[in-house]
Amino acid sequence: MVHKGNHLSEDDAARSSEIEPDDDALLVGTAAGDRRAFQRLMERHSRAMLALSQRVVGNTHDADEVVQEAFLKVWTKAPQWQIDGKAKFSTWLYRVVLNASLDRLRRTPLAPLEDAGDIVDPTPNGLDRALATQRQKVLARAMTALPPRQQAALSLHYFGDVSGPQAAEILQLSLSACEALLARGKRGLRKSLAALGVTGLGDML
């Protein structure tokens, strides 16, 4: 019985993966007010969106707010979504979350770097975390000195789990233009970090 039961559950799993609706189908359901479809859409994309937003804004609270607002926008705009195969939902969502996160980062006053705090946890993990936090503060400061488009390209490259072509699509650029923008962004970031006294990993130790 157990053996048969396992087979059944595997079959069920295979069947459910076969009929797993794509984003467009879930959006149609969302537009019709189907909360389960909307919840499935959130479950599918919230991890990637939270990760991107938190890495851009640098804290959990703002990232949660940004992603929450983005999903509220999805719920509101779902009836207007045009399923024509030209636009991908995930691309649109990435764009919304990225822009909102960068806006949030620009609006948030950055604390002076001297206030980054002393390392209070002497354990190896604690030391790593403290160093990462300090580096993140420096990085956020250096990033905000860059033009918005370069910030967006760098954020997708470093913080978003997206490929080059997908990043180009999110930024509404050709692949070559996106790569050029990223190269300019990296040059700008190096200069910006150098202006803050960071020329290598050792400077933050």
């Binding site: 949660d64 990462a132 580096r135």
Partner: peptide, 20 residues
């Protein structure tokens, strides 16, 4: 440098559920 500045992110089920 950038990759070393990325802190670990809590993407636990509890956080996702809270978001929903």
């Amino acid at each position: 440098f950038v990759r070393s500045s990325l802190p670990p992110i809590d993407l636990s089920a509890a956080r996702l559920s809270q978001l929903t």
